[in-house]
Design a binder for these strands. Structure first.
Lengths: 363, 363
DNA sequence: CGACCGTGTGACAGCGCTGTCAAGAACTCG
DNA sequence: CGAGTTCTTGACAGCGCTGTCACACGGTCG
């Protein structure tokens, strides 16, 4: 212990070119010296390469630990083929969703000695692919995680395919079999949620669509329709409202569906923000939930637990999905054959849904 | 145009060691060749160093543009003193707050050719400083942005001071004159909000404290007390409830303050999440806002606009604060004398506050 | 008009690490 | 027991760039 401490002191003093103010930098040379081997052998041990004797390996490990050695990412990136950098690309207004993705990806990155670069991109900008290419050549990222709606951007996908970059798409909507993919079964989730409403006695159920650019929107609608059909219920076209995944579009949809005499007793919105908009409008119209109206969402945003009544919704394991994506990149599972992972969802029942009002007793 | 295009082709073909699948990498050598100068001169132009003739500068710029050259960050970091990497460190449950910080910091990073590394840290873990030191030596970050509550962690501050790392603290609570700082005047903001409630006729005002570890909590309480005192109003100790910045602590505070006969007509909570908890509890107790109770928060989280009624709150320019912090690091303004920036806040009046009920008419 | 200075430019070393190759040690087998 | 094979290790080049130094040139000044 105290010996290694002394070593450290010496090494620090010996190296002449420390940029004074920075953290002390122990290099691979110091470790090699301390362990009595060549730097290449240290490199082998650190990279878990085969063909190193156990004795050597342990010596090196001990020396590295004693010196608190941490390999320099830039040097590794420059010399080798890996940069230990993963970029998370997004263009998504939903802060909570992004935060969850980051948390998940970061947990896996940290475990693997990787770091996460986050880069927001404006999907609508014409030069989005250029900006991404620029970033990739600057940083030499080992892989990209694409989130909706970026994961469906044709130009971006084309760029990545032609350059052969490693990338994983999270919850893509179209071309689901294109590239490596991590997603949930949106259709099945929406079907289950609809079944829940039906089981509560609802027969007059409205639906608010999601943003047409997100493929999940269409799958969720399909799930809704499937559940209605299998229950023998008719779907009224005027009870299906447009939506854009935003709170305000939910308010507008709420007005369309609720500010009338023949309104549905339950509304299933394509995501939580929209559902919250519907609830806000229901409040304005004096409807009490779930007595007069049941509302269900999709995503389980933090806000869903905070409104009154709390929102019944579908939970996607967003963090787990991002962790899986990071994993696939770190382990190089995007290389040969693209992989597709289907993750489990969960229906979260809270106060915003309840038994359908018995028509005879009201009005 | 077509000439340079041809050059590009040739260069790509000529360089033997492209890792096939990656993005084509134009190096500084290619640019130097195309411009007919040495690589050092190209480097000078790219780094805006002085003593380059205008003619040379323009030649180099043209060649770089034609070749779509982007300097490799790792190589720059390894060879030079800057890494073009800024780390945003956080340990904060509030996704929206972090997302805003990221957005702000990223906007400035991108403008300066920098990249943002995000690193969550568990403040309570004993080895937080070690983990940060580890990250710094791995990545050689040019600077760190510390957010609450990390920006008040004594061990972390000590580490950064001894290593001489560049860092900026966002909204620190204690030792405000320590290191470079970006913040708002929490006390003034809380005072103004309280004045607003008083101007609405409220005399019976409750307060929910923030997390005791965040200095902002204390300053906000001080602002509240100052406004009450200057208006000649007495502050009832039993109308000041503990809080932890969380929704649940808001619910608990709501129970304490509202589930009784002599309750305040207005409650000012130290942040939005807490205020939302109070509102949730008010809803449960059948109180209608703002008729029976006014509630004000602090932060202007996205949720504040989404609940019913919408929450009156204080908006901090979170993104701007992070952008300022990134700016200070990029321009090296943390080096010599520490800088302290005070940013402007804004009172956002929405539906959750209104005139005080006239006591004579109710009860 | 020679000593001196500022300006513009390039040669070169080397940042810390990994990939390649070669060489010695240890082991196998007919 | 010698040739062939595998294991273990190290020397060395070089990734793409910046920092240092040196050099050539034109201008200034006593």
């Amino acid at each position: 212990m105290s010996a290694s401490r002394t070593d450290l002191q010496r090494v620090r003093k010996a190296s002449p070119k420390r940029t004074g103010a920075r953290v002390a930098n122990v290099t691979i040379v110091d470790v090699a010296h301390a362990a009595g081997v060549s730097i290449k052998t240290v490199s082998r041990v650190l990279n878990r390469e085969p063909n190193v004797s156990t004795a050597t390996r342990e010596q090196v490990m001990a020396a590295a630990a004693a010196l608190h050695y941490t390999p320099n990412v830039s040097a590794r990136s420059l010399a080798g083929s890996r940069s230990y950098l993963i970029a998370l690309l997004y263009d998504n207004p939903n802060a909570a969703y992004i935060a969850d993705l980051q948390t998940g990806a970061l947990s896996r990155c940290r475990a693997g000695g990787y770091h996460l670069i986050i880069e927001p991109f404006d999907t609508t900008a014409a030069d989005a692919p250029d900006a991404i290419a620029d970033m990739m050549s600057k940083l030499r990222t080992d892989g990209l995680i694409l989130t909706p709606p970026l994961c469906d951007h044709p130009g971006v996908l084309e760029l990545l395919d032609t350059t052969g970059a490693a990338y994983v798409r999270i919850a893509p909507s179209n071309r689901v079999d294109h590239g490596s993919v991590v997603r949930i079964d949106d259709m099945a989730a929406a079907r289950e949620m609809t079944r829940l409403l039906i089981a509560d006695g609802h027969r007059d159920i409205g639906f608010v669509k999601g943003h047409p650019d997100h493929g999940a929107s269409h799958q969720r609608l399909a799930g809704f329709l499937a559940a209605m059909t299998e229950a023998g219920l008719t779907v009224r076209p005027d009870w299906i409202a447009e939506g854009l995944f935003s709170f305000l579009s939910g308010v507008a949809a709420g007005t369309r569906l609720l500010d009338r005499n023949d309104r549905p007793t339950a509304i299933f919105a394509c995501n939580d923000d929209t559902a919250l908009g519907v609830m806000s409008e229901a409040n304005r119209l004096g409807l009490v939930m779930p007595r007069d109206l049941s509302v269900a969402g999709f995503d389980d945003t933090p806000t869903a637990r905070v409104v009154w009544p709390q929102l019944t919704t579908v939970r996607q394991p967003v963090a787990d999905m991002a962790a899986m994506a990071a994993d696939m990149i770190i382990e190089g599972r995007t290389e040969d054959e693209a992989e597709s992972q289907l993750m489990a969802f969960e229906i979260i029942v809270r106060g915003s849904t309840g038994p359908a009002p018995r028509a005879a007793l009201r009005d």
